[in-house]
Structures are given as C-alpha cells and as structure tokens.
Design a binder for these strands. Structure first.
Length: 877
DNA sequence: ACCTCCCGCCATGCT
DNA sequence: AGCATGGCGGGAGGT
C-alpha cells in the first residue's frame, strides 16, 4: 500500500480506462500508476454507474466492480492480469472472475453492500495518495478519474472529498479537480477546529444534552429545564451557524465552489470533528452529535425525519473519518442502552496551536495586488503565496503595516487558484528539530502569555470580545472565563452571551484582530445583539487554559518558543508563530446563538452574514461596522472589511506561509490566544476569579454549577480547584485534571460511586488526581493507543488495527486522554508543504479564538454528565 | 426490529 | 441548456 501511495504520489490521478489495458500498471496500484498529464476532459464522464450486471459486453465493468470490491492489492493484481490481457481481455477478466465464481456466484460476487461501503471506498481512495504528499509533485485529483477507477458513482466521491475537504486534506482546484494535501495540514486544521469548537461551546452543548439525558433517566426535572437549557444552549437565536472553517492556504480556489452555499456536509464534518476535539472523553454518540448539529440549525424542530437524515449524514462522515483513522466506532452503554458512538483516535490537538511553524513567518505583503476589501474578504485573505518573509513584528505597528500589506496583497490577488511552491518551505521546515519540541514550547509560551495576559486583564476592565488576538492589543480586561462563561451561560443562557465586551472598546464592537494567531488579522463585527449580550458584567472567571500542555513538555527548540516565552506583553514581539490558532476565525460573539459563522471564506462569510442579518434583523451592522472601522483605523490603517455580524474578517494577510507568519503575529499579539479566549467568553454567572488566580493556576471556574446541574455544594466547592482549561491539552502528566473533575465528582456522588466527601480534584496546580480520575481515564488505554497510532502511524496504513479493542467495554467518565502523544510530529513539515501546495490560496477565515475554546472546552468537559459510560469499542468494518 | 448507510433522484447553481 | 455538486431520504442489507 505504501508503495503504492508513493507511487501515486506522482500520479495522483490516473484513470483506468477500461479501454486502456494498462499492463504497465504492474505496480501495485496499477490503477494509479498512470499519470495522465491530461486529465480527461473536464466534463465528467458519465457516471460509471454500475454497469448492468451481467451484460455481456460489459464484462470489464464487472471486473472493475469486483476489483474495486476487492482489496486494493487484489484489485491491482487482477487488473494487471485482466487488463494486461487486454481489452480482449475482457473475456479473460471474466474468466478470472469466473474462476472463482460460477454464474450465480458471479452475481453474488458482486460487491455486497459492505464492499461498497463508503468507508471501504474511502480507504481505497486514500490508498491512492500519500499521507504526506510531496508538494513538488502533481497532487491533483480528478474526480472523474477517481470515480472511474474506483468504480463508483461520482456522487460517492463527493461524499469522501467533501469530508476530506473539511479537514483540508484536499482542496478544490477547479471543476472536477482537487488537490491532494494529505495530512500535512491535518493537525493545523484540527487545532483550528478545536478552537472553533471551543468558541462554539460545543462542549457545553454536549454536556447539556448529556445532562438532559441524564436527568431524564433519573427523572429529574427532565423535561422542562433540560429542553429549555438545551435550546438555550444552542443559542437563543436559534443557532449559530458556523461557516466552513478554512485554513490559510487551503481554501477553495474555485470560485464557483466557494459560492455554493451549502457545504453542509463539509460543515457538518467539521462540526462533528469539533465535538470530538472539544469533548473530554472524546467520545461522541451519533445521537448527541445529531442533536447538536440539528440544534444549531433548528433546535425547535427536532423532528424525527430530520434527525434521521442527520444521522445518516453522520454515518457518512463517520465512515470517512474512520478511514482516516481519526475516529473509531464504539458503543456507549448507558442505562438506556447501547448507543452508537465514535471515539476520537486521532492526534491530540491543542487548540489552534498546533505546530508552530517554524519560525519565520512570511510576509505576505507584496505578494498580491490589492483588491477591494470585499474581495479580500470574499476571497479570503490570506494569500499563501508568500514567500517566507519573516515578519516579526515587534510592535503592533509593524503588525499593522504588515497587515495592511497583506491585505493589499490579498485583495489584489486573483482568486485564481494557484499553488505555488512550497517545496522549499518544506525544506525549511525540516530543520526544525522536532515539532514536538516546538509545540511544547508553544504551549509554554501560550501559557505564560495567558497568565500574563490574565494579569493584565485584571487590570483592565473589560474588553471587547473579540475573540482573540486582537484583544491583546486592545487590551482587555476581562478574565474570562471562558469556561465559566461557557458553562453558565450555556446552561442557562447559552451562548448568547458572547463575548464580550465590557471594555469601553467593547462598545465599539468591531474589533480588529491582529490575528496574531492566524496570522491574518481579522476584523470582526459584532452584532448588536452580541454586543448586548456581551455586556453582561461578569465576572471573571478564571480559568485559563493551557492549551497545549499536552505537548509534552518538550520544549521547543524553536525560536518561537522563546519568543513566546517572553511573557508578557501582549505585545507583539513574539514572533513566533503559534500554531494554528490563527487560522481559525471565530465568530465574535459567537457563541452559539447568534451568528456565527466563524470563519468562512469570504463568500461564505458574506453569505453567513446575510443570513444572520436576515435572521436577526440586522440593525446593528452599520453601527458596528462603522465602529469597527473606526476602531480599525484607530488601530491601524488596516482596512477592514465589513461583515455583518459576527464574522471575523481577515484583514489581511499572509499566505499560508503567512499563516505561520500570521501566527507569529498572533503571538505577538500576545499570547493572545489564550488570553483572548478568556476574554472572550463573557460568562455569566461565572465565578469570578481574580486574575491573579488565573494566572497562577487555572481555575476552572467551576461556576458551572450554576448550571442547572445540580451540583452539590460539595462539588461546587471542589470546583474551584479544578480547572478545566489546563486540562485538556495539558495534561499529560496529569490527565486527571480535567475540568470535568468537578463534574465527575458530582456525578460520582450522585451515582453513589463516591462519597460526597470525596471529590476528585483536578487541580491544575496539583495536577494530581485522585482516585476518581482514574475512572475517567479508564478508557484511556485504548484511546491512547488509538491516538498514538493515529499520529504516528498515520502514514500509511490506512487502518491500523482498531480491532484490538473490540468488544471491550470501558467506562469512561470524563477525562481527557492525556495522551502524551506529540501532536503531530509531522506538522512542521506538513505545514511547509502545505504552503506550497496551497500557495496562493487565501484563507478565508481564520478564527482566533483558540484559547477561548480551550477554556470552554474544559468547561464543557466539566459538565459532562456522563457519569459513566461504558464504551465498547468495536472495530467497525 | 433496529442499525447502517447505499443509492440515486433531483434541486441548486455555475458555465 | 448542460453539467457539476451535493442535499436528501427511501429502502435494503446486516445483525
């Protein structure tokens, strides 16, 4: 397989035409082997649709089918034979088939349903391309060819590609053509998604739903409160729509494509992934996922049909994700019964962070010609192309300038798809010692920054919410608690709260986000509503998360790290890039409710904006926009694009390289990410924590309690200790920490598993986790394994053995997995590559809030009521 | 009987 | 108009 992949490398697309006998294809993947410079006509060949079975003249078709059904290897072999024989070979092919099968059998031989499963198809698809494609090579994918080669309808290929696209493993080049990026961007993408998920408070939503269920079981207040809560959690508005989250450098190039509004499968896929990334146990049941996904759209109509449809779609997505080895099917056994669920087996990810890019960031500036701001937005802002110019912006000013430049570039940049190079970048990346180290460093930096920021925050009163980065610059104050906020609000008021905004600045909603993280700066417009929401006074919550801790402590050697380390100051100085964070754009206020779109491409953004406007009356936009603009100006010249509500708009920026650079910027911004997060969430009822506290430790704010959950006093008391934020990522050492500890305690107590007095603590500081934690972790072994596998192995084997776990049941409470695994080792490299391929691409949206997300996440985890779930892993397929 | 989810109709929207 | 996309849900295979 591997070999094949590599081979494919060069020949991403090759089509196998029946006509052509490709003897040559001796290579295992003969199919792939051919490289056709020409892809076939753009027009799609007719669907391969199945050939009517049995038709005499279509033996080949049958053959194909059979082959496709067969394992790739077999397939190849057969092909070789059959094909080699040649066209006439058709007969032979038949013969071959027939060898094993006689007439009836022959029919039977037709692929069974399973053989046609999307998962299997996806494996075949993935087998065609290397996990880490050489950017230098042609990695184009011709959908028609693939469909033909795999003997499936093109429709099915879309299903696969859409999911891959959601992970930025492929990007659309043009009509029928996609570019294969493999896993180079995966970690980054996942980091971004995690950040976005945090922003959206998915963890909270999950908790809400679980809680609800839990309550129902017990007949607590079940109905009333729960539903209300749930709805509320989803957003008062009704929901937050998320836009497709794009990464810099990986955007949709084809304008046409972009335009499509739906993308639902893509968006669903991203959301689904977010759920895993954000939830503590990292196990998400289809039911919960469907509810959340539906909820966003329409909480109210949970009609059955809709639910069923959603589930169907989730299965489709899950099959692809399973093929990618990012998730694995398991069953969660609750009192009610067994429910299908999936467990994340992919790499652990730090919010945004991800791997840093190596040090240098590139300036995008100059690259592209200016365009109108709209265009920029629309097209996305980041241009990837850039060359690597390093931009360290010591000061904001510089950032601003750079941003402007970027902006120009962007604007100017044609939408045309372009990819550029990148090989070099990859090379560059190579130098870095280890991604891990970098990551670790990053994490540290972030943490430090966060702490520092928190302090600052204390000082300051409030700040606009803008998610992220910008805050730093702006300065903001609030501690945030994202977590707290999330919890509280979510439960009660759900997301509506958004971010916030206390600060004076806040009034002016628009904020520019320097985008430190992403690298690109975004302008965000808040909806009036948001603003309102935001306003809540709140306190602080404390939590700050440490996103990346998990990274294992390794320090990064990278420069970045150092910079990050610099504590403080939000400022710009940190050159390094952080991670991924930047990429994601979040919605400003986003919280769930309102609007939401996070990042999206410009197009989407616009669309989203429109939607939101429609939904809500747009009123505010103008004002907010104006404000924003003003703010922006004030900040810098940076031109901001306006978008209605809550979207982040990238102001400028960098190309993929830029991304990194962007990151650096972000960093500059200051650890913003963490900080920002904090700020962002406005939490309502959260327990205020002093900043200092925050800085010091993560306090999870456990405010959670407010939730309707019934938290016992004791639990509450405990809560403070725990801090969620840190947990998630950090922890290796202390897995237990989870934010959820409080929850756990709560749960355990209720369950009677533990005495009230006992609580599981997850103190961040202490880190130690007492007994109960273990419980939570129980599942870990398997998980870890999975994770590791995923990370490490990813390359080739498409499917690492999942099966081991089969049948095992694990109790999971809520813990995250502490997997030490380094987050993507490949990242560095990949990023580089990334850039290359995507070169010119622009990012659409980037989200900032990683940090916030982290907090949220942790919060979310806290809540999770799952008291105990038994998870049985089974291999699927 | 339920879980999965394949299949392909048909709407949508770009060319 | 034609074609590329992909939403959607009927209904069948698997257990």
């Amino acid at each position: 397989m591997e070999n094949d992949k590599e081979n494919h490398f060069f020949e991403p697309h090759k089509r196998i035409l029946i006509k052509t006998p490709q003897k040559e294809s001796t290579t295992p993947n003969s199919v792939l082997a051919e490289i056709q410079s020409n892809l076939g006509p753009l027009t799609t060949p007719t669907k391969p649709k199945e050939i009517p079975p049995g038709e005499p003249w279509t033996p080949t078709a049958n053959l194909k089918m059979l082959i496709s059904a067969a394992s790739p290897e077999i397939r190849n072999r057969d092909q070789k034979r059959g094909l080699s024989d040649n066209r006439s070979g058709i007969l032979e092919a038949k013969d071959c088939l027939h060898e094993h099968l006689s007439g009836d059998e022959y029919e039977k031989s037709q692929p069974s349903r399973k053989e046609k499963s999307l998962g299997l198809l996806c494996h075949k698809f993935l087998a065609r391309y290397p996990n880490y494609p050489n950017p230098a090579v042609n990695n184009d994918i011709c959908l028609d060819e693939v469909a033909e080669e795999l003997n499936v309808e093109r429709r099915r290929i879309y299903d696969i590609v859409n999911v891959l696209e959601s992970l930025h493993m492929v990007s659309r080049l043009a009509k029928n053509r996609y570019t294969w990026h493999g896993r180079h961007n995966l970690n980054k993408t996942l980091g971004t998604l995690k950040s976005v998920g945090m922003e959206n408070k998915y963890a909270e939503q999950i908790m809400m739903i679980k809680k609800k269920e839990y309550e129902q079981e017990f007949d607590f207040n079940s109905d009333k409160n729960e539903e209300a809560a749930v709805k509320s959690s989803f957003g008062q508005n009704g929901h937050s729509d998320m836009c497709f989250v794009e990464l810099p450098g990986v955007e949709f190039r084809a304008a046409s494509v972009n335009s499509r509004k739906d993308k639902s499968l893509r968006v669903m896929s991203q959301k689904f992934v977010m759920l895993f990334l954000v939830s503590t146990p990292q196990i998400v049941s289809l039911e919960v996922a469907a509810k959340i996904l539906i909820g966003e759209d329409h909480v109210e109509d949970l009609d059955k049909s809709k639910f069923k449809t959603k589930i169907r779609r989730l299965y489709d997505i899950a099959n692809v994700l399973s093929s990618l080895e990012l998730i694995k099917k398991v069953h969660v056994t609750e009192e009610r019964g067994r429910k299908p669920a999936f467990k994340w087996t992919g790499p652990e990810i730090c919010p945004n962070s991800t791997v840093l890019s190596p040090i240098t960031s590139f300036d995008s500036s100059g690259l592209e010609p200016p365009q109108s701001s709209k265009e920029q937005c629309a097209k996305n802002l980041f241009s990837t192309t850039g060359k690597p110019s390093f931009t360290r912006h010591p000061s904001l000013i510089k950032l601003v300038k750079s941003i402007e430049n970027d902006r120009r570039k962007i604007s100017s940049a044609p939408s045309s798809p372009i990819k550029t190079n990148k090989a070099e970048s990859s090379l560059k990346s190579a130098p870095f010692p280890s991604k891990m180290a970098q990551l670790a460093a990053i994490c540290k930096m972030q943490l430090e920054e966060q702490s520092s920021e928190l302090k600052k925050v204390k000082m300051q009163l409030t700040r606009p919410t803008v998610h992220c980065q910008s805050l730093d610059f702006l300065a903001s104050p609030e501690p945030n608690r994202t977590m707290a906020s999330s919890q509280t609000p979510s439960l009660i008021q759900p997301l509506s709260v958004l971010p916030l905004i206390h600060s004076p600045l806040s009034s002016a909603v628009p904020v520019i986000v320097p985008h430190a993280h992403s690298g690109a700066s975004y302008a965000i417009y808040l909806h009036p509503s948001q603003a309102q929401t935001v306003t809540s006074p709140n306190l602080s919550s404390t939590v700050h998360t440490v996103p990346c801790t998990n990274v294992t402590g390794v320090q990064g050697s990278t420069e970045n790290t150092n910079t990050h380390l610099l504590p403080t100051k939000m400022t710009t100085e940190k050159v390094t890039s952080d991670v991924v964070k930047a990429d994601v754009t979040t919605k400003p206020g986003k919280a769930l409710p309102t609007s939401e779109g996070q990042t999206s491409r410009s197009d989407e953004r616009e669309a989203t904006a429109e939607r939101s406007l429609k939904r809500q009356n747009v009123q505010e936009d103008n004002n907010s926009k104006k404000k924003l603009k003003e703010d922006l100006k004030g900040l810098e010249n940076v031109p901001a694009t306006l978008f209605p509500s809550g979207y982040l708009i990238p102001l400028t920026q960098c190309s993929s390289l830029g991304t990194e650079s962007i990151l650096s910027h972000k960093e500059n911004t200051g650890a913003c990410s963490p900080t920002n997060r904090i700020y962002n969430s406005p939490i309502t009822g959260v327990i205020p924590v002093t900043t200092s506290d925050l800085t010091t430790v993560n306090f999870p704010t456990f405010h959670v309690t407010p939730l309707k959950l019934m938290v016992s006093p004791t639990s509450v008391g405990t809560v403070p200790v725990v801090n969620s934020p840190s947990l998630p990522s950090s922890n290796h050492s202390i897995p237990v920490q989870n934010p959820s500890s409080a929850i756990v305690n709560f749960t355990l107590q209720h369950l009677g598993l533990i005495s009230p007095g006992v609580q599981v603590s997850a103190n961040s500081g202490a880190g130690s986790i007492p007994v109960s934690p273990r419980i939570e972790l129980v599942s870990a072994p398997s998980e870890n394994t999975g994770l590791q596998q995923g990370k490490v192995t990813k390359h080739e084997s498409p499917v690492p053995g999942h099966s081991q776990l089969n049948g095992q049941s694990i109790t999971v409470a809520a813990g995250q997995q502490p997997v030490p695994v380094t987050p993507k080792g490949s990242q560095l490299v990949s990023e580089n590559f990334f850039r290359t391929p995507g070169g010119p691409t622009k990012l659409l949206a980037s989200t900032c809030d990683d940090l916030d997300g982290a907090h949220k996440t942790s919060l979310g985890s806290l809540f999770v009521p799952q008291r105990k779930l038994e998870v049985s892993t089974e291999d699927v397929h």
